[in-house]
Design a protein around this nucleic acid. Sequence first.
DNA 1: GTCGGAATTGTTACCGGTAACATAAGGAAG
DNA 2: CTTCCTTATGTTACCGGTAACAATTCCGAC
Lengths: 343, 343
Amino acid sequence: MEFGEGRMARRKPSIYDVAKVAGVSHQTVSRVLNLHNNVSDPMRQKVLSAMADLEFRPNQTAKALATGKTSTIGVLSHNTTLFGPASMLHAVQNSARELGYTINIVSLKSIDHQSIVEGIEELVRVGVDGIVIIAPLAKGVGPLPHVSDYLPAVLVEGEPISAIPSLNFNQFSGAAMAVEHLIALGHKRIAHISGPKNWYEAQQRMNGWRNTLLKSGLKADLIVAGDWSPQSGYDAVKELMVLGKPTAIFAGNDGMALGALKALSELGISVPTQMSLVGFDNMPEAPFLVPGLSTVNQDLGALGNQCVNLLVKLINHEDTGDIQLAFEPVLIIRGSTARAESK
Amino acid sequence: MEFGEGRMARRKPSIYDVAKVAGVSHQTVSRVLNLHNNVSDPMRQKVLSAMADLEFRPNQTAKALATGKTSTIGVLSHNTTLFGPASMLHAVQNSARELGYTINIVSLKSIDHQSIVEGIEELVRVGVDGIVIIAPLAKGVGPLPHVSDYLPAVLVEGEPISAIPSLNFNQFSGAAMAVEHLIALGHKRIAHISGPKNWYEAQQRMNGWRNTLLKSGLKADLIVAGDWSPQSGYDAVKELMVLGKPTAIFAGNDGMALGALKALSELGISVPTQMSLVGFDNMPEAPFLVPGLSTVNQDLGALGNQCVNLLVKLINHEDTGDIQLAFEPVLIIRGSTARAESK
DNA sequence: GTCGGAATTGTTACCGGTAACATAAGGAAG
DNA sequence: CTTCCTTATGTTACCGGTAACAATTCCGAC
C-alpha cells in the first residue's frame, strides 16, 4: 500500500493537510520535516503520525521554489551509448545521489555550438543547481566560458578552458605511454586510428601518438580517422594497409581496436606476431578479445566522483580556485602487443 | 554573452521584472511566454524586447508548482553501463526531449524490493510526471502495482504485471529462434549461459532455450548462470566443458558470448567448426568479433520511443487500456554458427 | 444611439513549501 | 517577585509562475 490507492484520485496532501490533522501550524510540520530540534517530542509524534496517516510526501518543487535550490545536477552529455560517456554518467549519478542530488540529463544529438547552447539553456530553465558537462568538444566553445558566471559548472572530457574547472585524464600521456610501449618493443612503423577530429580527447591522443613518435625520430604519417565505432576501426585498417605497412597500430579506443582486430584477422595478419595493437579505455570486453587487448585504463568512476564533489563545492560557494585537474591513466599490457619481428 | 555576466551576481529576473520594464502587467508577460494569441502586437513586442534586455529565462520550477506538472519523466534504472539499459536510456531521453520532457534518472545499486521502493519514492518526491521503469526485476515486485495508482508508469524489460503497462521484446521467442537455428544446423547438445537468475529477461531467455530443446526431444541440462559480463561468460565455458560436451552454446547476451569466445579459443576449440555460438542483443561489437557473432537483435531505440509515447499518453489521461506489448526480435546469423560436425 | 459580445489587459488568489518575525510559556538569575 | 533569556509554536510574507475572474475598449447589429 506504499503508494496510495484510488486511481490518482485525491490530491496529494500538503503540509497544511498534515498540520490540520495533527492540530498544529504548518510551520511546525515544516520543522519536523527539516529535522529542526526546537520541536517538542509529543508535537513531533503527532506530526509524524499525521504524515504517516496521510501518506504525505514533501513536494520537492515547492521546496525548490522557496529555497532557490533544486538539489538537481544537470548533465550535458553527448552519446550516452559510448563506453566513456556511459561510465561517466553512471559514476556521476551515483555520486550525486549519495550527496542528495538528483540527476537531470540532456544528451545532445550533435556537438555543435548551437546544440550546446540549447542544452545549457534547457538545463538553466529546468533550474539545476549546477552542470556537469561531459562533452568532448575541442573548440567552438564560444558560449561555455559564460556558463560559470551564471551557474556552477565543471567540464569533463573536454578541452580545459580557464573559465571552467575541468577534470580529465591526461589523454596525451596515456597515448604517449601506449606508443612508448610499442617503441620499446622495437616497432618503427606505428600507425594510429584516431577518433573524430573535433573531439578533444581524440586530438590529445593523436598528439600524444605523434609527439612520441617524432621524439624518437620516427615518422608519424600513418593515420586514419574513425568515429570510435568498431566499424570505423575495421575500415581504418583496410585503409591503412594501403597507405603503408605498419607493424603496430595504436587505436584511439577499444571499440575501434576491436574492429581493427577483425580486419586484421580477415587479412590474415596475426596479432601480435605480425601486428601489435593497443587500444584506449580498457572497457570490460578488452581482456576477453583474442588476443587480450593491451590498452590504456582510466578510472572513470573515480573521475565522475571527483567531478560531482567539486561541483557540489562550487554550488555551496566553497571557493576552490581555478581548477584544472588531470589524472594519469595507466597502461595495461595484455596479449595484443609483442616484439616487432626482427627481419 | 549568452549567459549573463557578473559572477552569479544579480538575482535572475522574473516575469515581474520583465513586466515592470515593459510597462505591462505580469500576466501579459505570462501570456507572451505561453504564446497566447490574445496579445496585441505592439504589446508583445514590448514584452519580448524587455525579456531580451533582461536575459530573462522562465523559471520552470515556479511553473511546475503552479501547474502541478513538472514536464519531467523519471527513469528508474539499474546499471546504465550495460548495453541494454544504456541503449534504452538513450532512446528514452531522446524521445522525451522531443516531446518537451526532461529526464530525471535514478539508477539503483541493487534491484531488491527496498531499493526499488526508495527509488520510486525519490522520483515521487522530486515530482516527475511519470516513470519509466527499466528494471529487469522478475518478482519481489510488491510495491510496483501501486505506482500506477499514484503516478503513470510504464515498465520495460521487466516482468509484465497487470497493473502496469509494459513494453518488451519477446525474450522467449528470441531465445527460441536462436535455439531453433542451432537445432536446424544439426546440434543436439546445446548449452546455455544464462543471465542472473533474478532478471526477468534472463529467465525468459532461459525458458525459451529450455522449452525449444524439450519440444525437440533434446535435453536441457547444460546450463550455467553468469552475470552478463564477459568475465562470467569466460568462466561459464570453463565450467560447461566439465559438465558435458556441448556442440553449441546459446549465451544470454553478447557480452558473455564474447567472454565465451575467449575461453573457447584458449581451450583450442574453434568456432564455428567445433562449437557454434549465439549471443543476444546484437551490440555494435557483435559483427566484429572473430568470427562474427550470430545473435538476436532487438531495436531498443524503437522500444524506448514507444515507451515514452505511451507514458506521455498516460500522463495526459488519454486512456489506453491495459497494455502489455511485446515486440518480436530478429535473429541475425553471422559466422559463429555452423552445421554440427557429422561424426 | 444603444446594447451585447469579443478582444485585450489588469487584479487577485493560489500552488506548497521556507524564512523571518511575533508571541507565549517556562526557568534561571537578581 | 520581577526581569530577562531561552524554547516552543504560530503568523505573515514570499519564491515565480498560472488560473480565474474583473475591467476596459472596440465593434457591429439593431
